[in-house]
């Protein structure tokens, strides 16, 4: 059987497992050298969720499904395109997002930051990319929040995203940031990315063409997953 492998992880784009300025990585990042694996059916397949049925409103985080009441904060529209390294759109792929509310607090028992919770904001959503690889969420701009990594540590406002793409090896969990945020350059999680261009790729662009008059500002955040190697090779091994 022919296996057309995917490109390797680009370690100039991704952070290392161990980045001391991000304290939690010190005891949790694997230290041994990764064992290289030749991609097989196990790696080039992966969950596609092709029969997923999203409920109405899953891509709209601004309104509570229970109460129908609007969450507090600045409404924003987030759009983007999911593609591979050859710029081919990745269609029908699930995107899951989660985030803090406008006050910088997550609807989560572990988050004890002394900022108000919003009963109408859960902070989670899902959508599926269309035929052009495009996605769109309507949400509330998240607030910055403090954390205990170092003295006076604050996370810049960010939204978490989780994507699968077409195979196990295209899996990606990341987060994006907002342009002009002064906390960005101080954030060890973002700074763990070894290149400046890599860090810059996690900052969304303000998109005036997405902004809707009298309604909400627009931001664009494109996502690139691993692409496929050009030539399929015939497995020999005999």
């Amino acid at each position: 059987m022919k296996i057309q492998p995917y490109n390797n992880r680009d370690w100039k784009s991704h952070p290392p497992y161990l980045y001391e300025a991000y304290g939690s990585s010190v005891k949790r990042g694997p230290l041994q050298k990764l064992v290289p694996i030749t991609q097989t059916l196990s790696e080039i397949t992966g969950p596609l969720f092709s029969d997923i049925k999203l409920e109405q409103g899953e891509a709209d985080l601004t309104r509570s499904a229970q109460t129908g009441i609007e969450a507090m904060g600045e409404r924003i529209i987030v759009v983007g395109k999911v593609m591979d390294e050859d710029e081919k759109p990745i269609r029908n792929t699930v995107i899951e997002i989660w985030q803090a509310n406008a006050a910088g607090r997550y609807q989560h028992p572990v988050d004890q930051h002394n900022a108000p919770l919003d009963p109408n904001f859960i902070g989670a959503g899902r959508c599926v990319t269309n035929d052009k690889g495009e996605y769109r969420f309507l949400t509330i701009k998240p607030g910055a929040y403090p954390w205990l990594n170092h003295a006076n540590a604050w996370r810049p406002a960010h939204i978490h995203l989780s994507l699968f793409g077409p195979s196990l090896v295209t899996r990606l969990v990341t987060q994006f940031f907002f342009p002009g945020d002064p906390l960005i350059s101080l954030d060890p999680i973002l700074n763990s990315i070894p290149t400046k261009s890599g860090r810059r790729r996690l900052i969304a662009a303000y998109a005036h063409d997405v902004t809707e008059p009298e309604f909400a500002l627009g931001y664009r955040f494109d996502i690139v997953l691993r692409g496929r190697q050009a030539t399929p090779f015939e497995k020999s091994g005999r």
Binding site: I122, H160, V173, T174, Q175, S197, L202, R226
Partner: peptide, 18 residues
């Protein structure tokens, strides 16, 4: 196109993922 960098799921991933 360059791969979009990975970031941690963080402590609150259960809101979105589980």
């Amino acid at each position: 196109m360059k791969q979009t960098p990975s970031q941690t799921v963080g402590p609150f991933y259960s809101i979105g993922l589980t």
